[in-house]
Computed example of a mutant assay.
Amino acid sequence: MGRKRRGERSAGQTTGPGPGTWEISTGTAELVADDFLDDAWTLQVNGVPSSHVVLGRPRELAFEYMRWIAAFTEEFVHSHLDPDALRVTHLGGAACTMARYFADVWPRSRHTVVELDAKLADLVREWFDIPRAPTVKIRVGEARAETAGFVPASRDVIIRDVFSGAVTPRPLTTVEFFRAAHASLAPGGLYVANCGDHSDLTGARAELAGMAEVFDHLSVIADPPMLKGRRYGNIILIGSDRELPVEGSPEAATIARSLLGGAVPAHLKDEDWTRRFLSGTRARHDGD
């Protein structure tokens, strides 16, 4: 009998991940086995790496930007919110990596994942060890429309990580969207967005300008080459009506230690820096 190759399904296995490509509602999904970790998979949606999952190890985050989101969100929740009553909404699902992570960090938290692709939502439930409802609920729908329909003050944290290819859909980058997200957050809640942008950073500036019309306080996380406009990459945009950590504060120092510990060190930029960064930038509106 031949030796089973990494990631190959055993005879009769009908669930769990295996290498291959599947048709989904919006195109194709491909699972690629990790060459360096057992039971680890990268999910590619229409050719773009969208999630990484290690079965049985929900706190393993391979994507640096997810580590940045985790570092900031954990400190914010620790300082201001009750993890046993925490309500988190994830706009953009793919393999539900962040929902798995936070559900493990805070076992009594509740997560709603909004995923556009109904077939993909079914597949990731089949493949991966995503906690069942009510811990993690997957809600099929378009993120902008779903956000507009959220009950006011019904969630504590919103994490937006929605892409069409390598770009965030424009309806999720406007003042009107930010107002809808803000209205659905409980007082003092947290909004976090993963923004993929080019070296000119015009997209990040426009989003922050829109967020500035809605949220009282803003911050940014990114690695230095990205902040200096040297390449395309991820920049994390943060908004809240609660004061956010400022440079020199104990909270900022705690986050900084986490951000500097990964393979791609990143910096937390506080409100003063962020306001200077977006100075003079025009926000996007639906009608533009």
Rank of each mutant, 00 (worst) to 15 (best):
L208A: 03
T202Y: 12
N46Y: 07
R230E: 14
D241M: 06
A166D: 15
G47P: 02
A209V: 06
G27P: 10
D241I: 03
D104Q: 12
A85Y: 01
V192L: 15
I69S: 04
E74I: 09
D38Q: 14
H78K: 15
A153K: 14
L81D: 04
P107N: 14
G16Y: 03
A186M: 08
A204R: 02
D38T: 13
D270E: 07
E207H: 06
A266I: 04
A11T: 14
L260P: 00
P19C: 09
E243G: 00
P171A: 09
T14K: 14
T97V: 08
Q44D: 09
R110L: 15
L61Q: 02
F277H: 02
P152I: 03
R87H: 13
L81M: 14
R125T: 10
D104A: 15
G141Q: 10
L259M: 12
T254Q: 12
E213W: 02
L190H: 04
N234T: 07
A209Q: 06
L185P: 00
V246D: 04
Y101M: 00
R5Y: 04
F215K: 01
W22L: 12
V88G: 02
T281H: 01
H217A: 01
R276I: 01
A103R: 03
H80V: 05
A181G: 01
P224E: 11
A70Y: 00
D272Q: 13
H182Q: 00
R59P: 00
A263V: 14
L81A: 09
D161Y: 05
A40W: 05
E126R: 14
V53M: 09
A206Y: 00
G18M: 07
R276L: 03
E142Q: 05
R276A: 12
H111T: 10
V113E: 04
G18L: 09
G16F: 06
A263F: 14
G188P: 03
K228H: 15
I236Q: 02
S164A: 15
L123M: 15
T168D: 08
T135Y: 02
L259R: 09
A209W: 06
V88A: 06
P171D: 09
P134K: 10
R257S: 13
F215A: 00
G56Y: 07
D288H: 07
A40G: 15
T42D: 13
R275A: 07
K119L: 13
P250R: 11
G2N: 10
L37K: 09
P134S: 10
A133K: 10
H78P: 00
A181C: 02
V105Q: 12
A283D: 08
G196K: 07
L201R: 08
K137T: 15
R257T: 13
T21Y: 04
V45G: 05
L259V: 12
V214G: 03
V162C: 07
H285V: 06
F277E: 01
L31F: 06
P224H: 11
D216H: 06
L237W: 06
D286F: 08
T281M: 04
A212R: 11
L244I: 02
